[in-house]
Simulated assay, not measured.
Amino acid sequence: MRIRATVAAVSGALAISAFAVPASQAADAATSYKAEAAKIFAAHSGKTAFSTAAATDLGVTFSDLKIAKAIKVGTTNHVATTVTYTLTHGANYDINSSDFDSGPVIYKGSSVTSAENVLGGELPATCTATSDTTATCKGNIDIFPLNEDGTAGDLLNSDAGKWSAGALALQYSTGDYSVQGDLGTTLLQRYSKLTVNAGPEPVAKGKTITSTGKLSRANWEDNKYHGYTNQPVKLQFRKAGTSTYTTIKTVYSDSYGNLKATATAQADGYWRFSFAGTTTTPAVSATGDFVDVR
């Protein structure tokens, strides 16, 4: 699920986009977990017709949330990452009731209740009681960089970087809910690719080997891969028969993400480029390219 505050004016007010709902799952949107969660977060924005004035905090709290340190998202494929947490509730709640659901969320912004963007799960978490008032829960954060109908997905390029994690519990019949943020953090990263081609091959010992390649990363706005410019990338060599790469030198990608580095041929082995990564883009190493030295 997704909600994003935008600056597009609609009847003099800021517009709020609904959580993304794939067409194949849209039929039950009016009563689904996603739809109810969307209302809650949209209402918190203060920019929609939904109101939480009559809603009561369920008194549910969350703790011990665990989420991946980083989530890599490409240009087309659905990405799901598992989140676990502990839910603490009043003894009068039946967590297995069809009237009660919970799920994890991640959000971009200073607060879960006034976030720029919120992402959650297609389905609520599965919670297993551990006592009369506690349960362990496991759910997904589902991310769609591209919707089934080919329209823009959940993310803008500016969304890459640090996100905070939280959780939600809701009661369908009353509209009451509890939401809690600042339970953890993760990085949403634009999936990266790195290539290498070393030559000539074969090459005489003492001659120059030239390695070329390209560092690129996902663009979440046009769903293509573009060069990642002006980034330090290591040229590395692994001698045939060994398992460890050694850094020879560092070069920088050009304005198209292209790479070029030269080195002296000394022995048979594999050449590759290796990128250490940034907060917005994961580390990646090219598959080594073998060069026969004679």
Score class of each variant (00 low, 15 high):
residue 287 T to E: 15
residue 95 I to D: 02
residue 164 S to E: 15
residue 45 S to G: 12
residue 121 G to C: 12
residue 234 K to C: 04
residue 244 T to E: 15
residue 180 Q to L: 07
residue 197 N to T: 15
residue 229 T to Y: 03
residue 184 G to F: 10
residue 206 G to R: 07
residue 3 I to A: 04
residue 19 F to N: 10
residue 174 T to I: 01
residue 81 T to H: 07
residue 216 S to A: 15
residue 7 V to K: 12
residue 235 L to T: 08
residue 127 C to G: 06
residue 258 N to M: 08
residue 97 S to F: 01
residue 84 T to H: 10
residue 187 L to K: 15
residue 211 S to Q: 07
residue 53 A to W: 05
residue 117 N to T: 05
residue 219 N to D: 15
residue 294 R to E: 11
residue 232 P to I: 00
residue 122 E to R: 14
residue 182 D to G: 11
residue 257 G to C: 09
residue 7 V to G: 11
residue 22 P to Q: 01
residue 100 F to M: 14
residue 64 D to R: 12
residue 164 S to G: 04
residue 90 G to N: 07
residue 144 F to A: 06
residue 244 T to H: 06
residue 137 C to N: 12
residue 289 D to P: 08
residue 39 K to L: 00
residue 52 T to M: 15
residue 106 I to C: 13
residue 97 S to C: 01
residue 257 G to N: 10
residue 170 L to P: 03
residue 226 H to V: 07
residue 31 T to K: 08
residue 66 K to C: 00
residue 175 G to M: 08
residue 294 R to N: 10
residue 78 H to C: 07
residue 113 T to H: 05
residue 75 T to Y: 06
residue 160 A to C: 06
residue 121 G to P: 03
residue 40 I to G: 11
residue 35 A to E: 03
residue 281 T to F: 05
residue 66 K to F: 03
residue 210 T to C: 00
residue 209 I to C: 02
residue 155 L to G: 05
residue 186 T to M: 10
residue 60 V to E: 08
residue 20 A to C: 06
residue 43 A to M: 04
residue 214 K to T: 07
residue 254 D to G: 08
residue 234 K to L: 06
residue 267 A to G: 03
residue 226 H to N: 10
residue 232 P to E: 03
residue 190 R to D: 13
residue 117 N to Y: 07
residue 254 D to S: 12
residue 122 E to M: 14
residue 74 G to C: 04
residue 207 K to D: 14
residue 99 D to S: 13
residue 240 A to I: 01
residue 111 S to C: 02
residue 17 S to V: 02
residue 192 S to F: 08
residue 208 T to C: 01
residue 67 I to Q: 11
residue 166 G to R: 08
residue 203 V to L: 00
residue 26 A to I: 12
residue 253 S to P: 02
residue 243 S to W: 01
residue 264 T to L: 03
residue 204 A to P: 01
residue 174 T to V: 02
residue 40 I to N: 11
residue 146 L to H: 02
residue 207 K to A: 09
residue 205 K to H: 07
residue 97 S to Y: 00
residue 218 A to E: 03
residue 165 A to Y: 09
residue 34 K to R: 15
residue 176 D to E: 05
residue 225 Y to P: 01
residue 124 P to K: 11
residue 197 N to L: 12
residue 136 T to I: 10
residue 50 F to M: 04
residue 138 K to M: 05
residue 180 Q to W: 02
residue 104 P to M: 14
residue 160 A to S: 10
residue 21 V to W: 10
residue 30 A to K: 09
residue 87 L to I: 07
residue 96 N to E: 10
residue 221 E to H: 04
residue 214 K to Q: 13
residue 100 F to S: 07
residue 75 T to M: 02
residue 38 A to W: 02
residue 61 T to E: 12
residue 87 L to G: 01
residue 138 K to F: 01
residue 287 T to I: 07
residue 167 A to C: 09
residue 191 Y to C: 00
residue 124 P to W: 08
residue 251 V to S: 04
residue 289 D to I: 03
residue 184 G to V: 09
residue 48 T to N: 09
residue 290 F to Y: 15
residue 167 A to M: 06
residue 223 N to G: 00
